[in-house]
């Protein structure tokens, strides 16, 4: 009963914490998407320097721990004169991180769109940018929806790490409640449940997006 009591007593704090987590993760995923798409096209570019640059970017953000990345962004940017709030630094780090993972997801999707479809479009005089926008990307989105849903779930969970730079998201809200109630087990249990509920919602949204994008699909 202690559990429900805490949940009720701190409901506003918990809601704000959950909302902060949701907004930060959602913003990171959405803003990281165009960036990831751009890097995916960069990874398959015919231009060697572009390809190399994108590969290095991808390897750095995929190959270092998120915690290190957050601390780097948080401490590095002020040292070059950019004064960022913790929330901005956190979102920036998450965007850069997820864009690398999304680039790989999109790159995989790109190779699954048959080359012949692009050739058919070329033969009809359709410009490369239009081919991407009208033919490749719509199919790409369908192909990558399950993987992007996964990535969204990862980012939502990983966003708990930004509590280290004192962003009051869901986990840090929990820590504050613990220091007031001295009930770590109940509080962290509660926090875990809230994470699960949010991720179930994301998974459900992902399934709907998949069903929606599947209409007509498959050659």
């Amino acid at each position: 009963m202690e559990f429900l009591h805490i949940a009720w007593a701190y409901k506003e704090m918990l809601l704000v914490g959950a909302a902060t987590t949701a907004v930060i993760s959602g913003a990171s995923i959405l803003l990281g998407m165009p960036l990831g798409l751009a890097f995916a096209f960069g990874l398959v570019s015919h231009n060697r320097p572009i390809r190399l640059f994108c590969a290095v970017y991808r390897s750095f953000w995929r190959g270092t721990p998120l915690l290190v990345q957050i601390l780097l962004v948080f401490y590095l940017l002020p040292s070059i004169g950019l004064d960022l709030s913790p929330v901005t630094a956190a979102v920036l780090a998450l965007i850069l991180n997820t864009s690398a993972f999304q680039a790989e997801i999109f790159r995989g999707g790109l190779s699954a769109v048959p080359k012949g479809q692009v050739e058919a479009a070329q033969m009809l005089g359709i410009a490369p940018i239009t081919i991407r926008r009208r033919i490749v990307i719509p199919q790409l989105l369908r192909l990558v929806t399950p993987a992007i849903t996964n990535e969204f779930i990862s980012i939502l969970k990983n966003s708990s790490i930004i509590s280290v730079i004192s962003v009051t998201e869901l986990l840090r809200t929990g820590q504050q409640i613990v220091s007031a109630t001295y009930r770590p087990l109940e509080v962290y249990g509660l926090i875990a449940i809230i994470y699960i509920v949010m991720n179930l919602v994301i998974a459900q949204l992902g399934r709907r997006a998949e069903a929606r994008l599947a209409r007509g699909a498959r050659a």
Binding site: G116, E119, A120, L124, P138, Q139, G216
Partner: peptide, 27 residues
Amino acid sequence: VGMVFQHFNLWPHMTALENVALALRVT
């Protein structure tokens, strides 16, 4: 020059009409 391929290469996310109309619009 028009081209017809062995594997048709239609765009699966578009209807037959949209497949035919796209290049009429953009080209």
